[in-house]
Design a protein around this nucleic acid. Sequence first.
RNA 1: UGGGGCGUCGUCUAAGGGCAGGACGUCAGACUUUGAAUCUGAUCAUCAAGGUUCGAAUCCUUGCGCCCCAGCCA
Length: 801
Amino acid sequence: MSKKPADLIPAPEARHLPPNFITEVIDADLQSARHPHIVTRFPPEPNGYAHLGHAFASYLDFMTAQDYGGVCHLRLDDTNPEGETQEYADSIIRDMQWLGWDTSRLFYASDYYEQLYGYAETLIQKGLAYVESVSGDEMARLRGTVDQPGTPSPYRERGVEENLDLFRRMRAGEFKTGEHALRAKIDLASPNFKLRDPVLYRILHASHYRTGDKWCIYPMYDFAHPISDAIEGITHSMCSLEFVDNRAIYDWLMENLFPARETGKTPPHQYEFGRRSLEYTVVSKRKLRRLVSEGVVSGWDDPRMPTISAQRRRGVTPEAIRAFASQISVSRTNRTVDIAIFENAVRDDLNVRTPRVMAVTNPLKVTVLNLDEERTLRLPYWPPDVRRDSEGLVPLPSGERVPPEEAVREVPLTRELVIEREDFNANPPKGFKRLTPGGTVRLRGAGIIRCDEVVTGADGEVQELRVTLLGEEAKASGVIHWVSATRGVSAEFRLFDRLFSVPEPDAEAQQFDPEQPGHEDESQPLDTDFMHFLNPHSLVVTRGLVEPSVTRAPEGTRYQFERQGYFWRDPVDSREDALVFNRIITLKDTWAKRADTTETRAEGKPKPAAEKKPEKARVEAAPTRPALTPEQEATFALLRAKGVSDNDANLLARDALLATYLEGANEALFGALAPWVVNELATPLREGRNRVTPEQLAALLKLLAEGSISVRIARDVLAQAQESGEAPASIVERQGLRVVSDEGQLRAAIQGVLDANPGKVEEYRAGRKGLMGLFTGQVMRATNGKADPKVVARLLGEMLG
RNA sequence: UGGGGCGUCGUCUAAGGGCAGGACGUCAGACUUUGAAUCUGAUCAUCAAGGUUCGAAUCCUUGCGCCCCAGCCA
């Protein structure tokens, strides 16, 4: 029970989430026992359906907590009554459960309204908040601009009592919407706009989906969110990058309302991560709402939408979505992820969980001339590789696990069949492996047929194929799927494709901004709207046949229809007597891809090559430096005269802090000291934690000049000195540090390293010269950093031949 | 223009002074009664220029590029 916090740090192999910049912080916080355990939260606003972006963020929040044996709260961040509904809240909760998250810790920001109000009064009483009474427009004007500080409104200096009175009357409903607002009193001149007295509360006479008309003032995100975190005891609060600036308010509130010295608890802290968007889609709630409201899609759960509920209806599994979230990983950069990574996660998941059956989505009639009697085939549900890897039992569609040889279904083979229309071609392109007039092909599981006759209709369209079933000695290069025309079951197929025809509909839309006309294609309509890039073929509906076995499978069974893709019955529209199958995703199709690329190539559209950064020539090869003021110019000249390098002198001239430090030393030593001040001391100096005096530095460099220590040693010692405050030279003496350049000694050390890495030595000799760094590093380590690297490099070169 | 964040294969990411690694994609081959899966191999990257160092993706400097911030949205 009373585990030490540090014990909660999971071993690398026990983590679901690969180590990242956030887990690094958590590790440190646990190590130092800053927090006894980890509590995270996922705070969606219920003003739309959750989408893949939420899946990613929730994965991060829930999985991080799980990895550390902590908990994650699901918190509906419902502080804006406009647009928030119970339906959205319910859908988000359902989606989170479906993803597999433990939603037993369910919270609503709206449950904190009373507490939040109390904290607002506290702020007022501390003189840290005031009631603003100018209009919104006026407030925006007074906020200033990027190079103009804000100016205080006449109400900024209202007294505590007046503020309290006004705020209470705001709550009581004495004012109209927008008439007043509560603002934090922070800093109107801050370069961070978020700190220019942010609004904490606004008056809004609107009904809230949970609190009804109880409130007519509502807290803003910047106020409600940090306090909700503190109330719930959140330790690590993760949000996306656009909130970086808001962190200043977060910290301000923690400092003023939840300081550790009063609560005895480390307050929560905010960490930001990069958003992930996906190619060929949009994930802005506003835009998704528009797709729904304009009827471009049938609803939030239209299987082409990137929402969780749409993906669920489409047939994608939660495991696949989690695998995707894990694969795209977390970093501090906004990224647009290649759709192929998502598709791979979906296919990879379905490949091992779906039995194989046959269906024809676009039928072409085939009559087998030499087959009069119906036969019943017993065909395996699983391909050889899955059977092989199953180690014993494989599942039936019912879920029952049986030996592979029993995992079969009965497939009727009749005189009249259907095959896929595109599996027959009267004028086959080169490399076509399917059926052609007079050609042969294998019918999956049934044998090889030869096409003897092609029946064409008046319109020239192929109506029927008449074929002969051949013996097993016949040859065929291709295999196609089929279904009995008489025993197959009619079904509707919904073939989904990407909703947008371009990878980044948002970015593309901007390219056609009429304000900045593109210079590429005048014929393109000047449509700024992402809607312009909708893929007209994102939904294709066909009728065809499925083999009868699938009607006996439980609902929710996912299949691979061989050679076509993964399908399942649409959970909304499919009925027993009117089957509707959603295509979850196609199989990878290198044949179609080949046809595709040769086609575009023929049209002469060599996509990437042309974009070769033409005008960005190497004109400004010379390093450009900011111009020096006359004063700096003088310093520069002086330093140059004292033997300081051009580069260092320039930097020192512009950085008074560093120059002042250097001036504390003997002028004769400027040349020697300058590079060390610039490269080693600059950071500690700027951060105000430098503990090495110019004299001490000079003393150390004297040892270096004498050749008794190496640069490496000097640098290490300097770092130690910054930590301990001890004089570097005395550290050298106390630790007996002395450069080792004795060849015999070094040869022995090198030989040791070489002997320990025979494989690497071989690789090096085979030409992998990059390994030199590895060897050098190991020798340095073996000698505790004392070896003279220059000598080591020379000897290493010799000894490795 | 002020402040902030960020730049590593085509895409996502690892290495935080010492082997630029992995995944996806792509290409080639093997296997194949799914043009799938599987297996093998290959291709491919540190934004740029200077500096420090035996050694820089990593530290220092300058430049370039992208993103966010002036809602009483979140």
